[in-house]
């Protein structure tokens, strides 16, 4: 049974477009995936992962969806399966990529388009505030 006050708190975030909030439920869902990412903070683990990604992933008990998302570097998929961006950062840093590189991919734009948007002042909040009221 849901507590109405807590449900209201969580539901308000669900109305925000293009945004996944890493709450305690998603933290449970993504635990193994996020712990795999943490392991890449050690050079010996980065080496082992690079040498054979699928083999390295076996020890982390990922769901099939989580494993496929990692192997395909499907960042949106990893987020959907409970990954958190600061944990996933260990994976894209291992690949030699920046936050901006991955942000551009998640928005579906090219690196150049995304960098240009940022140089021009970033994404305008207008129209990006509410799923239920797109005019906000």
């Amino acid at each position: 049974m849901a507590d109405p006050k807590l449900s209201k708190y969580l539901d308000e975030f669900e109305d925000i477009p293009g945004t996944l909030i890493f709450n305690t439920y998603r933290s449970r869902q993504g635990f193994n995936l996020n712990q795999f990412c943490m392991s890449l903070m050690k050079e010996e683990n980065r080496k082992a992962f690079r040498a054979n990604e699928a083999e390295y992933l076996k020890q982390w008990n990922l769901t099939d969806a989580q494993r496929d998302a990692v192997l395909n570097r499907d960042w949106t998929g990893m987020m959907r399966e409970g990954g958190n961006i600061y944990f996933l950062a260990k994976l894209f840093s291992t690949d030699g990529h920046s936050f901006q590189h991955v942000a551009a991919i998640m928005t579906g734009s090219t690196q150049e388009e995304y960098a240009k948007m940022m140089l021009e002042g970033g994404r305008n909040p207008k129209g990006n505030r509410s799923k239920s009221n797109p005019s906000l």
Partner: peptide
Amino acid sequence: MSHQLQGTRAGLINKEW
């Protein structure tokens, strides 16, 4: 200050706020 690193809304900046 303003920043969103994830999802299709990444890159949001709200200078006024």
